[in-house]
Simulated assay, not measured.
Amino acid sequence: MSTTVPVLEILPELPAARVLNALRAAFTELAGGKATQPPQTVTLLPGGGDVIAYQAAQGDAYGVKVSPYLPQPGGRAVITAWTLLLSTRTGRPLLLCDAAALTVERTAATSALAVDEVARPGAAALAVIGSGPVARAHLRYARAVRDFTSVRMYSPSLTASAAPEDVTVAGSAEEAVAGADVVLLCTSAAQPVIDAAGLQPGTVVTSISTNAPRAHEIAPQALAAMDVYGDHRPTVTATAGEMAIAAEQGLWSAGDLRGDLPELLTGACPAPTGDRPVFFRSVGLGIEDLAVARLLLNP
């Protein structure tokens, strides 16, 4: 007997608190061995391009997000993402959704969870580098975990009239970052966008991934002078561009990673020293996609 599988091409609005709670639970279960997070897999396509698969299992569900990168002759590459949710009790599909918006939400929420764990209790000044959907989602989730009283945002195209509410538009990345307690890097840049060497001790910087090979939003050599954390220890150290480059140059190693989100949430790794800037790197995980996709079954 066939059943209709829900196909969502528009993500319903999900409260930030629900998304954050779902991700906290998922990462905590991952720490306790009650969830599974395999490595990303990359399939190279004949003639160019690739498809990245992000898998995970949690509770009675398995999820996989497939994200094709399809170069186009003489034009911009096609990049899509679809998440499939399966029941691990029946083996039947539960949901198929366009994962573009889902990825924005889970990426921003993951950064916010890290900020809540590693930022100083009195952190009040926030800087956001970038102004697109990912940057605005980061701002929304950061405000859900901390009461920032000062927010500066910078991107080359951002104007005061287009800025989010209660946000000051900075004239440069350097101006946005100056004096910030937390810096959220939300760009598609393949090269550093701030000078991490000039950051004050205790300043938290978060960084995300892009499709550019070995993309990095801070210089690899900056890692040696920072307390470094990631979303998932086995994945981030193998995938993050600045970590791979720094390791190859003998400037930093995977053993220098102080902890990941499962460890931070369960107290299984040391807290930041307070003597150095803090760097949190996320590369995107199937467990994040799965946690948010499960919410879509009961939005």
Rank of each mutant, 00 (worst) to 15 (best):
L113F: 11
Y154A: 02
Q200V: 09
E175A: 13
S157N: 15
T210C: 10
S207M: 14
L126E: 03
A123E: 01
R146L: 12
A170I: 01
R140F: 03
A114I: 06
V169I: 01
G130I: 05
T110A: 07
A124M: 08
S161D: 15
V128Q: 11
D116N: 10
N211E: 15
R214F: 13
C186A: 15
R214E: 13
A212P: 08
E217H: 04
L185G: 03
M153Y: 10
C186D: 05
P220V: 10
P164C: 10
R152W: 07
L113D: 07
A160W: 07
T168N: 07
P121Q: 02
A215Q: 11
L126T: 01
P220Q: 06
G179A: 05
V118D: 00
P201L: 04
P133S: 15
T110R: 07
A189E: 05
V145S: 02
R152V: 06
L139K: 09
A144M: 04
A124Y: 10
A127T: 03
A212D: 09
A114T: 11
H216W: 07
G130Q: 03
V151Q: 00
A123P: 14
V128D: 03
T110E: 05
A108P: 00
E174Q: 11
T203S: 03
F148E: 00
E217W: 10
G122T: 04
E117F: 07
M153G: 05
D147S: 12
V183W: 06
S207D: 02
A173C: 10
S157W: 05
G198N: 05
G202P: 03
S131F: 09
A108Q: 13
L126M: 08
A137S: 14
A142N: 05
S157V: 05
A144W: 03
T210N: 12
A135M: 06
R120F: 02
A163Q: 11
R214Q: 15
I218K: 01
A119Y: 01
R140C: 01
A144S: 04
P164G: 06
I129N: 10
L158N: 01
A125M: 06
H216K: 04
S150N: 12
S161I: 12
L139M: 08
Q191R: 15
P192Y: 12
G122P: 00
S150V: 13
R152C: 07
I129P: 06
S188W: 13
S172M: 09
A112D: 04
S157Y: 06
P201K: 00
A197V: 00
A215Y: 08
R146F: 08
A196V: 11
H138T: 05
A135S: 11
P156S: 04
L199K: 11
A125Q: 15
S150Y: 05
S157K: 14
Y154F: 14
S209F: 14
E174N: 03
A197S: 15
T210G: 11
H138N: 13
V193D: 01
L158G: 05
G202I: 00
G130K: 06
A125N: 12
S207Q: 07
A173F: 06
T210Q: 09
S161R: 15
A125E: 08
I129Y: 09
